[in-house]
Write a protein that binds this DNA or RNA. Sequence first.
DNA 1: TATCCTTTGTGTAATCCAGACACTTAGTAT
DNA 2: ATACTAAGTGTCTGGATTACACAAAGGATA
Lengths: 224, 224
Amino acid sequence: MSQKYCYQYPHPAVTTDVVVFTLRDERLQLLLVKRGGEPFKGSWALPGGFLDIDEDLESCAKRELQEETGVSGVYLEQLFTFGKPDRDPRERVISVAYYALIPSDRLELKASSDAADADWFPLDELPELAFDHNQVIRIAHERLVSKLSYSTIAFQFMPEAFTLSELQSVYEILRNEPLDKRNFRKWISTLDQVEETGEQRRTGQHRPAKVYRMKHPNRVEIIR
Amino acid sequence: MSQKYCYQYPHPAVTTDVVVFTLRDERLQLLLVKRGGEPFKGSWALPGGFLDIDEDLESCAKRELQEETGVSGVYLEQLFTFGKPDRDPRERVISVAYYALIPSDRLELKASSDAADADWFPLDELPELAFDHNQVIRIAHERLVSKLSYSTIAFQFMPEAFTLSELQSVYEILRNEPLDKRNFRKWISTLDQVEETGEQRRTGQHRPAKVYRMKHPNRVEIIR
DNA sequence: TATCCTTTGTGTAATCCAGACACTTAGTAT
DNA sequence: ATACTAAGTGTCTGGATTACACAAAGGATA
């Protein structure tokens, strides 16, 4: 094919890459795709791709997310823009990285056409990654952990309806430490972010748990 | 000139823009340059410009900062990447925005060659700006204010040597409220970030103040 | 139908941190 | 000597965070 888009000065290519977090099997996991083409063919990498010339950055990230996971309407935030001159061997590529949080009940993967394969990996068992994607993931994880302490971002991992024990478990996984049940519930109630649905949930031979929902499912509040 | 840089797919242009904050005349001010060329010729805008094809993003921002203010070695942090398809009427432009904090003793402006004029403006007396630069500034200001409360970023406005009253004044300007002297000093001492130089400073007909310096002048610590 | 098992759900006391608040000290000018 | 001004310093109170243990509800089983 001919080189038909010409400029007076050299232009870099622009991509978006998305770090897709979820909680699966009591662990923080993220989505990787196996690269079907060069460079790094066969390596695992973050889902992402080139920005269409008339497409907004966030739309591009949402599109990648939709193509790789089939989900939309989840929490998505711009993370950082990476642009070391040699980060892609083909040409100069600026990558605007986003990160997304997927509720644990919405992760039906569908392998996309341009990815030979896609799978979830626990954060502490990542393979070697293409490009500078290990660095991107490290920064995304730092952002997530830091937002834990001053926002309600962790609620974005919850399904529509959940129990307080499930919510506590999410915090325990993310912070990697056990929490006191009474203090946790006291703290949650001061946040004023959840309400009872009136339903109960029976799992196993013991007292059923009250079911809650978020008051503002799509909002991430700054707290403290 | 001919269009000699050609690609198989259309590429956006990439720029960096820098929101340069300083404290002048007891106010938070920022640097704007008057645009010498189209579009928005004659309008005020953030200092910035196109990324060289082999230049790192942060290097590009540092270069703009150096060209417009003559300073280097100051605090510079990536802010956000703006990429609405129509934000520049010439062509698709992705702008990676940075913000910088300049100590109040280092702001000798030198008008650069490609800016007809450059000047400081108080944040609350900004003129109409080119492109989406009003939005960029708003987000930079939000970031600065929020970092105030959980980091030592405000120290980056201080000269090498300063008194505790001067430091308190910086916080009062940035937070736009008076602070209690004893509580402020108690808080500063818990931070363990400053040390006495042994010098004193006499200004006016009253008790001289002890002079301090930062223990780690180039580091911004996360606190709390 | 009584007992056991498991998870849900709840309160109080102790400690730490943040905020309110006023006077003495050191120097200059008259 | 006196007056003026900004520098420098400690205590008390209220609110928030932490530590900590037992009763309640339901299912399974004997």
